[in-house]
Simulated assay, not measured.
Amino acid sequence: MCYTTDINNWETSMSTHLESFDFNNLPLIVDVVEPLWFPPVGNDEFKRFNVEYIVRNNIWENNYRFQLVDDGEPSEIHSAAFFARKGDYSNVEKWFTKESQRFPEEWKTASGMSKTFLTLMDERTLSLMQDDDIKLSLFISRKPGAGSSILEKCCEKLRAEGWKNLYLWTDCECNWQWYIKHGFTLLKEDTYEPFSDEQEDYKTYIFKRKL
């Protein structure tokens, strides 16, 4: 799932660089999406837990986890991007088993619904990819314009390593039009029935960009 609050004008003259993601910064990533991804049940503690669960579902066990930070000291994280190759895995369920014990089982049903959706969309996207393609799994911007910057820096790095195409999926709750403006082609648009209602279909989108 890709999400960005990015806009094109980054009103800062600070120089930045790309580095490996520091998991101490994970709460800052959760802060960005918590107001939008909260579940329909549970107290505030559970709602934040569930949002972190969604975030961790999109972080894979590989070296393709990046953050964009200031060149100066102290460094400040502006954005983060996480990628997945075919065959990569996530150890999020180990974290979930440990951290979810303090919540009632009926609340955790919401987490299961999130997991089902994420797994389905990941499988649909990965099925379109070749072995030399890579998937952008999660994309968070904390500063206006920092999303554009980290995307271009990551694409440059991936291109240099020989990756051919960048895939991603997102949904109607995210700013999916942003990707069309940044060189992505829409491959598939579908309706996810479990999240749809009589008033509105819940749309999902799969994109591709040549590196």
Rank of each mutant, 00 (worst) to 15 (best):
R124E: 15
W107R: 02
S114Q: 10
R85L: 07
V92Y: 06
R65W: 05
R85K: 11
K188T: 11
F82Q: 05
W10E: 14
Y205E: 04
P74A: 06
L128M: 08
F103R: 08
E123I: 05
F38K: 14
C155Y: 01
W163F: 15
R56K: 14
G112Q: 11
N50S: 14
E93F: 12
G162D: 14
M113R: 07
N43V: 04
K188L: 13
Y3I: 10
P104S: 07
D22S: 09
D6Q: 02
K47T: 01
D132S: 11
S20N: 15
P39M: 05
L158T: 04
I54K: 04
R102M: 12
E152W: 10
D197E: 10
K188D: 10
L36V: 13
M129P: 03
K153W: 02
F207H: 01
Q177R: 03
L18Y: 08
T204A: 00
S20Y: 03
T4P: 03
D71Y: 03
I54C: 05
I180N: 11
S137F: 00
F38G: 12
N9L: 15
H182R: 15
S20C: 13
D22F: 05
T204L: 02
L128Y: 02
T170Q: 01
W178T: 12
K181H: 12
L158A: 06
C154V: 03
R48P: 01
E45M: 05
L166D: 05
G147M: 09
F21R: 10
W176M: 06
D133L: 03
F82S: 14
N8A: 12
D6L: 00
S148Y: 10
Q67T: 04
M113C: 08
D122Q: 13
L168I: 05
N8Q: 08
